[in-house]
Structure formats: structure tokens, C-alpha cells
């Protein structure tokens, strides 16, 4: 997954560079450097530290917060489709715990891509979509690699007992 995303964002970066060359010639406003924050399942699958011990599956949708101009957003959506992925238009609605941290995934001249830290992604899933992520949360807690996970689920009003039910 990480390899595929690298290909997508590298191509997007080249497209922005090409567009900026045209804009320099025509005197238009240049496309600024963009920041993309990958959330949800894709953030876990691209995180080498957690994908080695969690069982992860995902559909082709990409949850991401994107601070882009229209040109980049359109180009990114096209590139994702060409590579068997889809941008989830509901991404902006995803709840992110306020103390979340972020890790850099790629840094190209025109695009900076980062992922939400794995524990915060799991907290978000446990609170907002517990049924869909029941086994994943159980596996994460049982792994003992996320020391704050159970406490944070409780802190945000999650039902920890739900994950203990068969």
C-alpha cells in the first residue's frame, strides 16, 4: 500500500510542478505546497510499525484531510481512480481525538503527506464505528502495544465492554 501511495503522490507532485511551469509563463497564481493527512484504515496499513502485527483489510477508499486547491484535488481524485483507489468524500466528517499526533509519510517538493498516529486512529474507530472495527480493536488491545488505548476509549465515552462481548 505504501508503495502504491508513493507512486500516486509522486505523480501528483510532478503534475503540480508541470502546472506551475504553465502558470509562471501565463503569470497566474502558483499552486502552493499542499498538506495531506491520511486517516482511517489506510493510515494503519501504511504504518509499518502496526501493520506487522495487526490484521488489516480495507476497501479501496482513502480517508484523508486535504488542504488543497481545486486543481490538486481534481488531479488527486483522478490519480486515485487510475490506481484502484477512491477518495472518501466523507473524510471531513471523521472525528479525530484532539491529542492525536502525526507522522510524516512522504515529503515531496509540492506535497507533504502525513498519517495520524496509530493509537489515535484506533480510538477514533472505537468511538465512531465500534461494530465495524470490533475485532481490530480487540486485537490492538490484546497486543499490549497501545498502552493508552483502553483508557482513551473510556475517556471519550466509548463502551469498552462492547469489545469484550463475543
Amino acid at each position: 500500500m505504501k508503495k502504491l501511495l508513493k507512486k500516486v503522490f509522486k505523480t501528483l507532485d510532478i503534475k503540480i510542478a508541470d502546472e506551475n511551469r504553465v502558470r509562471v509563463e501565463s503569470g497566474g497564481l502558483l499552486v502552493p505546497k499542499c498538506e495531506i493527512t491520511i486517516l482511517g484504515q489506510m493510515s494503519l496499513l501504511t504504518n509499518d510499525k502496526v501493520s506487522s502485527f495487526l490484521t488489516l483489510a480495507q476497501t479501496g477508499d482513502m480517508d484523508a484531510l486535504i488542504s488543497l486547491n481545486t486543481f490538486v484535488k481534481i488531479e488527486l481524485k483522478k490519480l486515485l481512480i487510475e490506481n484502484g483507489l477512491v477518495y472518501d468524500e466523507d473524510s471531513e466528517k471523521i472525528w479525530i481525538p484532539k491529542e492525536s499526533g502525526y507522522e510524516e509519510l512522504f515529503n515531496f517538493p509540492f506535497i507533504h503527506v502525513r498519517i495520524i498516529d496509530a493509537e489515535s486512529a484506533l480510538v477514533s474507530k472505537a468511538i465512531k464505528a465500534p461494530l465495524k472495527n470490533k475485532q481490530l480493536i480487540r486485537e490492538a488491545i490484546a497486543s499490549e502495544r497501545f498502552q493508552g488505548l483502553a483508557d482513551r476509549i473510556l475517556h471519550y465515552g466509548g463502551d469498552l465492554e462492547f469489545f469484550a462481548e463475543d
Partner: peptide, 8 residues
């Protein structure tokens, strides 16, 4: 078939 992706 490409409907899902997995790390297994």
C-alpha cells in the same frame, strides 16, 4: 480480484 486489500 482487487475489491479488498489486506496485509495478510
Amino acid at each position: 480480484k482487487g475489491f479488498l486489500r489486506a496485509n495478510q
